[in-house]
Structure formats: C-alpha cells, structure tokens
Design a binder for these strands. Structure first.
Lengths: 216, 216
DNA sequence: GCGGAAAATATCGTATACAAAAATAACATG
DNA sequence: CATGTTATTTTTGTATACGATATTTTCCGC
C-alpha cells in the first residue's frame, strides 16, 4: 500500500485502463475519481497529470481528461519501436558486455528454462523480464536502457497475455538462446537482427490474439 | 502569456536549467519557487511533477526535488538514441513516403538553403526542424514520430548551439541532400545510415563544443 | 415553435489552511 | 565527552475554499 494517495490513484486508474474497466474516450472526472478513491481532488489532479504525461490520457483544455487507450494501430506502432530499441540494446550489448554480465545473462536464461519445465508462466514472465534486464544493463547506455524499460512497462499488460499463447514460451526460449549466442560471439548485427525479430514475433502473436478475441 | 500558472513555472524552470542558471543537484524548493514566480505552491507542485516526468528533475521522497541536468555522458547517450530514432524514421519514410510528402521535404530543404544564403541561423534552425518534421510525418508511425520529437525537444537547447559551430550549417545541408536522395530512391538502408550519421556528427560537434568551452 | 441571449450551473485552476512525517537541534544522562 | 532521546522546525502531502471560465438551461422575443 503506497503512502501516497496520488500514486494510488495513478496506479488504480492505470490498472483499470489496462484491464478495460475504463474504456477509450471515457471521461476521467476529478470529482468522481476523488470520491471513488476516497481522496480529495488535489491528489487526483496530480495522478491525471502523470497519466497524461505517460500517454494514457489526454487533456482537452477546459473540457476535461479522457482515457486514451492505445488503438490497435498504436499498439503495432509501439511494438515497431520496441523492436528497434531492443535491437539497439542487444547490438550495443554485443560490443560492450562484460564477462560477469554475460554469465548473469546465461544464468537468467537457465532460470527461464526451469520456469518452463515447471510450466509456471508467471515465474517465466518474471525471469524473462530479468533476462532482458540483463541486456539493458549490458548495453552501456543508461538512457537507452531506461527508455526501453519504460516502453516495455507500457506494453507489459499485453505482453503478459501473449505468453499464454500456445507454445510461445518454448519458442521464446529458442530466440533467447540465439540472442545469447550472438552477444557472446560479439556479433552486433546478428544480435540486433535476432532481437528485433524476437519482439516483432510477439507483435504478430499479439495480432493473432486480438484476431482470436474478436472472433469470440 | 500562458493561461496556466503551472505551465509558466514549468517552462521557466526548464529554461533556467537549460541556460545553466539552475545547476545540477540544486534543490527546487516549492516555497521559493512559489515566491519567485508569484504563485502558490499548488501550481509549483504540478510543474515539478512534470519536470520529474520529463527527466529534468528527480524527486527523493520526503527530501524534495532536485535539478537533474544531463551529464556529459548522458548527453552522449541521448544522442546515441536520437541517431537510432532518426535513422528509423528515415528508413521507414524511405518505404512509406507519399509523393506530396516528398515534395514538401524537398521544399523545406530549399528553404534551409535560403536561410543559409541569408546567413540567418535562427531561420535555419526553424527550417531544419521543419525538414526533420517532414520525415517524422512520413515515417507512418505516429508513436515513433512523437517519441523522436520528444527527444529532439530535450536535446534542443544544445542543438541550437551546435549550429553556430563554424561551417556546420553548410555541412548539414549536404547531409540533408543525401537523406532526401536516399528516401527518394526508396533506399531504406541508405536513408537509415545517412540519417544516423547526420545526428552522430552533431553529437561529435557537441563534443567539440564542450571541449572548447572547457578550455576557456 | 424556434433562435438567441442571459442566467444558472458545473467544472477547472489556484490559493490557502491543515496534518503528518522527517530532519535537525537541543538536551539530558551515562 | 559521547550517545540516545526528545522537542522544534522544516517540508511534504492532502483537504477545502474560492474565483474564473465554459457549458447548459431557461426564458423571452419573433
């Protein structure tokens, strides 16, 4: 439980947008949110500011705040950028990774493997984050790492769904191995290429998922 | 004059950070800022939130807000990412640009040329922004365009200095022509490569500039 | 009955007041 | 003199109150 009311509101609304309880275009009324979260308007306003800042809402001057859930198109666009950033991280990591960092990378991939063997998709989810975190740390560009992390967080809620797609975890692991191999051998171009594909495949899976959801 | 006090404070502090009046690590005291800008603490707090959101300040819980001017290293890192994003925009634009957009791109470059002939570096600055804006629009990925714009804004104040470096404007124009040529011929790889270099050269110039400033 | 103007109402942005938490300072005790 | 405890003070976070502006409603003239 966060000590800050503003943070609670922010995360609460964020959650409700991600889960679809708050739909695109819906009005984020300050008074209603204040009542719903049992706080005053002040922290609600701060939360809304942050939501606008992180692109989850839009503020039409003197008209109010509205939910801005990413459209299908925007999701694809975000994946396109994500694949570029992941590729860049891997490319730089291939050149700059230290021995210790390489060991940590390999270790985290083994843990991914164990999670699959245990058929624990939640565990896999976390270990997968760790795997990519290793690459971000190893890219030697903290700004890039932070930007990539930020975008990852934004795609996170959708990403969690993707892993439940049949066979995705195993396939993902194969791709991880390819990434590791490229980084280990210092092949920047290959690391870049494989990482991009790793993300874009998820984008395609996401596509499948949406299509599947729309059918039912 | 902005109608919002919060915005005035935000832009004011942003400006003072960019110009070095507010130095790295300096405390952003709510009460002082409120007095300085002749407003109450409420809009000051909103401004600080936005500053933190855009990475210009850090908030240590229960300790206050502090200026976080990018270090030299961070600047280099940001340029590294910027070159990747610009490259991506150009690469996608090479594949997706429409005839009208291509014409607009060529037009804005001619205007850059005129600005140089008139030796008007301020005008060149704006026309240069327009030139790149054309590419962003043509990349067919609005999310990417917005991210690139955002990072450009963040590097903006430094960028303005770079243009005053001797001969930079003319050199920049040559690079623009190369970018246009690559995009016109639909050579995505070339567009990517040239655009990256276009940005990275600026990064290097920035490096020169800093080195020069440190000497004096 | 319809269009437009004016009043009423809602809502946003800002100011101020208050409460809670933490840092600093002062003090007492060993 | 040092250390631990307590009090003071600073500062943060939240609530509420007020003024301004936009929107809606109502009412009057046509």
């Amino acid at each position: 439980m966060s000590s800050r009311a503003a943070t609670r509101v922010f995360q609460g609304v964020e959650e409700q947008i991600a889960t679809g309880q708050l739909k695109d275009g819906e009005k984020l009324d300050e008074a209603s949110l204040a009542k719903r979260f049992q706080v005053s308007r002040t922290p609600v306003r701060e939360a809304l500011l942050q939501l606008v800042g992180s692109g989850l809402a839009t503020q039409i001057p003197k008209r109010g705040c509205f939910v801005k859930a990413p459209s299908f198109r925007e999701m694809i666009e975000m994946f396109e950028v994500m694949s570029e950033l992941e590729g860049m991280c891997a490319r730089l990591a291939a050149r700059r990774i230290s021995d210790e960092q390489l060991i940590a990378l390999e270790q985290s991939n083994r843990e991914c493997e164990n999670a699959i063997k245990a058929n624990d998709s939640d565990l896999y989810y976390h270990k997968n984050v760790e795997f990519h975190e290793c690459i971000y740390s190893a890219c030697g560009n903290r700004f890039l790492a932070e930007e990539t992390r930020s975008l990852r967080r934004r795609l996170q809620s959708f990403r969690r769904l993707q892993l439940r797609v049949r066979g995705r975890m195993t396939q993902s692991l194969v791709e991880h191995s390819e990434i590791i191999e490229a980084i280990r051998s210092g092949d920047a171009n290959q690391a870049d290429r494989v990482s991009r594909e790793h993300v874009m495949i998820q984008g395609e899976r996401f596509n499948d998922l949406i299509a599947h959801m729309e059918q039912s």
